[in-house]
């Protein structure tokens, strides 16, 4: 009914995050862009597991004779969410330390390594 719209929206999220990475200079904005990409990919994963009219893949009080959605992508997404949090925390730690040294979060101003 809604066609491949969820997949397309996920890709739009990915592209939005990539846009932020390309054209935003603030380090925290960069991390926000990465989170947006990650949200898009996670939604994509879960969307691949959806079955039209399926129910939650948990047998506790499940309605009898109902198709279940695919459980594997959900497990993968759990993993990817935690990985996303881990990378975010580490990157923000770097950003905080850079700010401590340079007093700025502008990617163009804090850059020393080049050439």
């Amino acid at each position: 009914m809604i066609g491949n719209l969820p997949f397309v929206v996920c890709i739009v999220l990915v592209l939005l995050g990539l846009w932020a990475l390309l054209f935003r200079r603030n380090l925290i904005k960069v991390v926000i862009g990465l989170k947006i990409i990650e949200n898009g990919v996670n939604l994509y994963l879960v969307a691949t597991g959806y079955v039209q009219g399926g129910v939650v893949p948990i047998w506790t009080y499940a309605p009898p004779d109902a198709a279940m959605v695919l459980p594997t992508p959900q497990a993968l997404t759990l993993t990817s969410i935690v990985i996303g949090l881990a990378t975010t925390a580490l990157m923000l730690a770097f950003a905080v330390v850079i700010h401590r040294h340079k007093g700025s979060l502008d990617g163009r101003k804090v850059t020393e390594l080049s050439g």
Binding site: L21, F23, G107, T111, E112, S114
Partner: peptide, 17 residues
């Protein structure tokens, strides 16, 4: 060649794209 190695994160990602 050195002119490409600006060191700016946006450029790194641009090359990736």
């Amino acid at each position: 060649l050195r002119a490409f190695h600006t060191g700016f994160l946006g450029d790194y990602v641009a090359w990736l794209v």
